[in-house]
Nucleic acid binder design. Structure first.
Lengths: 197, 197
DNA sequence: CCTACCGATCGGTAGG
DNA sequence: CCTACCGATCGGTAGG
């Protein structure tokens, strides 16, 4: 959870993220959110315009964070090989997911409850994100740095593993986020290469 | 979808699986299910006792299928090494997931909406299933057949990848289920070994 | 399998 | 941020 919300609006989003992660968007009422903040359901509407809007804010913020992480992970020098690029991508993803598992979990699972343009916009952004990884894999294969496999299947496999993380990760768990990032990067890169490097 | 339901009760479960997968359990009303069958909402209750009961039937059936698949994948001779055992486990999982993605998807995502004993029972069965894979990995590591890594992290990684499959898989997709099973088994086994075998 | 109906709860508004 | 309230919809029952 993003700690110590500075504004009321932000506190609502944080509480909503936690509840949406636990029960799902549809099974969480605005009164559930209000109760967690010790106010009346109707009072929420002084700060937000709708439940759907809160979901959108959460999903949009999460997507923006993953996009930014992927962007900065792409800043590796061109000399870096595909394995290192993929490793950087995965590490960046895991660090975002573990820094805010509530936000990430809602992003991963609850975007389906968005409607209209918001839904299609977030779908397109998710597709672009997955395409980034797919291209990294395809490039590495062309360069002979990765085993020849189906890049779309490989990207789905790896992203599936990454996306499940936000569901089970707990900040007080056995392993710190950095170690999980290392392990996930190792597993993913090894799954795509003949020799571990 | 499990085709050609022989009973009305089964037709309800199949339609419910498809809707629960698309929109989630909480966002699907009993009237949505009835509409898909061209009957009135109240008429559903001639065949089922509650919406929660339909969810339970679906989740229980899916869990039973995965348990049976894991069981028969374990019938490999003791001479078989950990990589082959894991390969068999993954292939079996992928074949169940692709044979019925609606059922599988509800099993993976909607069990949270179960309550009381049913919820804890299914959680325990999911844990046992994950433990199977974890033990396969730990054994392979002890035998020196797999790279030394954290078995719990590795099992979560692989199962996360497997569980995402039912979300995106479509029977009319580019690759047949058998090819996806091969790819997933390759990716997973390679992620755990130094050399692909 | 239908019509008619139930109490509870939903997201949200009015008006302070 | 509250009280009071709205119409719509929810899961489910009664009684054919």
């Amino acid at each position: 959870m993003a700690t110590a919300a500075p504004t009321r609006r932000r506190a609502i989003e944080d509480v909503a993220s936690a509840l949406f992660r636990e029960r799902g968007y549809a099974a969480t009422s605005v009164r559930d959110i209000a109760r967690a903040l010790d106010i009346q359901g109707a009072s929420l509407y002084s700060h937000v315009t709708s439940k759907a809007d809160v979901l959108w804010t959460i999903v949009d913020r999460a997507s923006t964070r993953f996009e930014a992480a992927a962007e900065s992970a792409s800043q590796l020098p061109p000399s870096a090989g595909a394995p290192d690029r993929i490793r950087a991508f995965i590490r960046a993803h895991v660090l975002v997911a573990t820094a805010d598992p509530e936000l990430t979990s809602v992003f991963v699972h609850e975007w389906r409850h968005l409607e209209g343009e918001r839904r299609s916009a977030i779908l397109a952004r998710r597709d672009r994100y997955e395409a980034r990884l797919r291209y990294l894999i395809a490039e590495g294969m062309s360069a002979g740095e990765l085993l020849p496999t189906d890049p779309a299947i490989a990207a789905s496999f790896v992203l599936g593993a990454l996306n499940s993380l936000a569901t089970w990760y707990r900040p007080d768990g056995r392993l710190p986020a950095g170690r999980i990032a290392d392990h996930y990067a190792d597993l993913a890169v090894r799954s795509l290469t003949e020799d571990h490097q």
